[in-house]
Design a protein around this nucleic acid. Structure first.
Length: 417
RNA sequence: GGAGGGUUGGCCGAGCGGUUUAUGGCGCAAGUCUUGAAAACUUGUGGGCUUUUGCCCUCACAGGUUCGAAUCCUGUACCCUCCGCCA
C-alpha cells in the first residue's frame, strides 16, 4: 500500500511504475476520490466541532433539538465518507509499489539481468536421468500414488529422500540460527488480513486455499504469517532489524499454472520452506544492505550443497506488486537443461508494513513504518530435483551432499537390488 | 463445545455519563546545566485536516442508546481461569 500523500506528490512516478509492472491503475480517479474525501472531512469536522460546543452548554429543550438535528446531518455525511473511504481504499490496495532506480525496466523474463553465476555445470559421460526417473528407479518418490491420494501434483517422498528432505530443512534452519536469525515455526493456517498485508491479496487470491467459511487460509509461504507477526505493533529503533528464519509448510493452488511443470517435484501444491524475513528501519540504503545479506545467506546454502546457480536482478515486469527490488536465484537442473528458480529475494519497502500497520519509534522520537524484506533460504522438494540430478552417477546411484552426510548417516543412495 | 473474568497511549496503571483538553508513574527524545556522563529541571512523546490560529478523531474492533460515551447496551476478535474433548 502506498500512502495517498505519496501518490499525490509522485503521481507520474506511480503511474510509470504501474505501467512498468504491467499493471493498470487509475491514479486520476484515486485523486478525484481523495478530493471528495477531503471535502467531506472538512464538513464532518466542523459539524463535530459544533456538536462538541453544544454539549458543553446548559441543557435546554432547544439545545437538545439542535443536537438531534446536528446528529442527523452528521450521520448523513459520515455515511458518505464511509463509502468514499471504502472506494478509495479498494483502489489504493491495487496500486503497486514503485521499484528502485537500479531495477531494469522490462516487460518479461527477457528483461532480467543475470548478475552472477557460481559453480560448474556437470558434464555427464552417460545419459543423465531426470529426478522423476531417478525417484522411480531408486524408490524415492511415488508420484502415481501421490496423485491417487492427493490429486494432481500430489507426491510421496520415500526412503533416503524423505530423510534428505528433513535434513535439508534442519541444516538450513540451523545455519541461519548460527548467523543470529531468530528461529520461528510459523502457523500455516492463517487469517485473511495476513494475506492482504503481505500483498498476496487482492492480486493472488486464486492461488490460495481457503478453509470452509472461516477466516482461515493455508499459507503459501511463511512470509505471510511472519511478516504479520508484529502487525498493529510499534517497535523500537534500537531493536531493529528483526531477523527471522522461519519454517512452515506451504500450500499453493497454482491456479494460474495448470499447464506448467506438470511432471515431477517442481511445481507442487504442498511443500516445505525455510524463509528469511527481516523487519527493519525505513531506510532504502540499509534495506539494500540487508537485501545483500539475505542474498549471501541463500547463496552460501547452495555453495554448501555444491549446486551450480545463477542470480538474476529481476526487471520491473517480473516483479510482484509489493516489491521494489528483487533477485531470483536459480539452481541448475540437468533435466531442464536450464536453471530453475529456487529462491526469491525481495525488498518491499513499507508496502507491507503499511498494510499491516507495523511501525517503530525512531531515536528522534518520531514514528514511522518499518521496511520488510524476505528471501527463500530453502524450499523442498524443489531443491531435491537439483540434488538428485546433479549428484547422479553413472551406476545409477546418487551421491549425498557432504554437509548432509553426517545428518542422514549415508553418503550415497544406491539402486535397490 | 460450555461457564466465568478481562482488553485504556511505547510500557505500567487510574478513570466507570458532562472541568478528561485521557490523572499518575516508567521508558524514550530534545533542551538547560556539565570538561564529559549521571542526577536534577524544562519541554515533547497516537492519527488526520489546516499548515497562521487552531480544529477533528483516537480508551481492542464494529454498531447502538444519549443533547453529550473511555464510561451504558449489542455483536465480533483476542487474552486469562475452569469444565468437556483431544495428538
Amino acid at each position: 500500500m502506498l500512502s495517498i500523500g505519496y501518490i499525490r506528490q509522485n503521481k507520474q512516478k506511480v503511474i510509470e511504475a504501474a505501467k512498468n509492472k504491467n499493471r493498470e491503475v487509475d491514479i486520476e480517479k484515486i485523486i478525484k476520490l481523495d478530493d471528495q474525501r477531503l471535502v467531506l472531512i472538512h464538513q464532518t469536522q466542523s459539524l463535530r466541532e459544533e456538536r462538541n460546543k453544544l454539549a458543553k452548554e446548559k441543557i435546554t429543550e432547544a439545545i437538545k433539538t439542535k443536537g438531534r438535528e446536528l446528529k442527523n446531518n452528521l450521520k448523513k455525511l459520515e455515511d458518505q465518507l464511509t463509502v468514499i473511504n471504502q472506494q478509495l481504499n479498494e483502489l489504493l490496495s491495487y496500486v503497486p509499489n514503485v521499484p528502485l532506480d537500479e531495477v531494469p525496466i522490462g516487460k518479461d523474463a527477457s528483461g532480467n539481468k543475470e548478475i552472477k553465476k557460481w559453480g560448474t555445470i556437470p558434464k555427464f559421460d552417460f545419459q543423465p536421468k531426470s529426478h522423476i526417473e531417478l525417484g522411480k528407479l531408486l524408490d524415492l518418490t511415488d508420484l502415481e500414488r501421490g496423485a491417487k491420494i492427493a490429486g494432481f501434483r500430489g507426491y510421496f517422498l520415500k526412503n533416503e529422500l524423505a530423510l534428505l528432505h528433513f535434513a535439508l530443512i534442519f541444516y538450513v534452519f540451523n545455519k541461519l540460527v548460527k548467523k543470529g536469525y531468530t528461529p520461528i515455526i510459523a502457523p500455516a493456517v492463517i487469517k485473511g488480513f495476513t494475506l492482504f498485508g503481505s500483498g498476496q491479496f487482492p492480486w493472488g487470491e486464486q492461488d490460495v486455499y481457503k478453509l470452509n467459511d472461516d477466516d482461515a487460509y493455508l499459507a503459501g509461504t511463511a512470509e505471510q504469517p511472519v511478516t504479520a507477526y508484529y502487525s498493529g505493533e510499534i517497535l523500537n529503533e534500537k531493536d531493529l532489524p528483526k531477523k527471522f528464519v522461519a519454517f512452515s509448510p506451504c500450500f499453493r493452488k497454482e491456479a494460474g499454472a495448470y499447464g506448467k511443470d506438470t511432471k515431477g517435484l517442481y511445481r507442487l501444491h504442498e511443500f516445505w520452506k525455510v524463509e528469511q524475513v527481516i523487519i527493519g528501519k525505513n531506510d532504502v540504503d540499509e534495506a539494500r544492505k540487508l537485501h545483500e545479506e539475505l542474498q549471501k545467506n541463500s547463496e552460501e546454502i547452495l555453495q554448501d550443497l555444491e549446486l551450480p546457480y545463477r542470480v538474476l536482478l529481476m526487471c520491473t515486469g517480473e516483479m510482484g506488486e509489493p516489491h521494489i527490488k528483487k533477485y531470483d536465484t536459480e539452481t541448475w537442473m540437468p533435466s531442464r537443461n536450464a536453471y530453475g528458480e529456487t529462491m526469491s529475494n525481495s525488498i518491499m519497502g513499507d508496502f507491507q508494513t503499511r498494510r499491516l500497520n507495523i511501525k517503530y519509534h525512531k531515536n528522534d522520537g518520531k514514528t514511522e513504518f518499518c521496511f520488510s524484506l524476505n528471501n527463500t533460504a530453502l524450499a523442498s522438494p524443489r531443491i531435491l530435483i537439483a540434488i538428485l540430478e546433479n549428484y547422479q552417477q553413472k551406476d545409477g546411484s546418487v551421491l549425498v551432499p557432504k554437509v548432509l552426510q553426517p545428518m542422514v548417516g549415508f553418503n550415497q543412495i544406491k539402486p535397490r537390488l
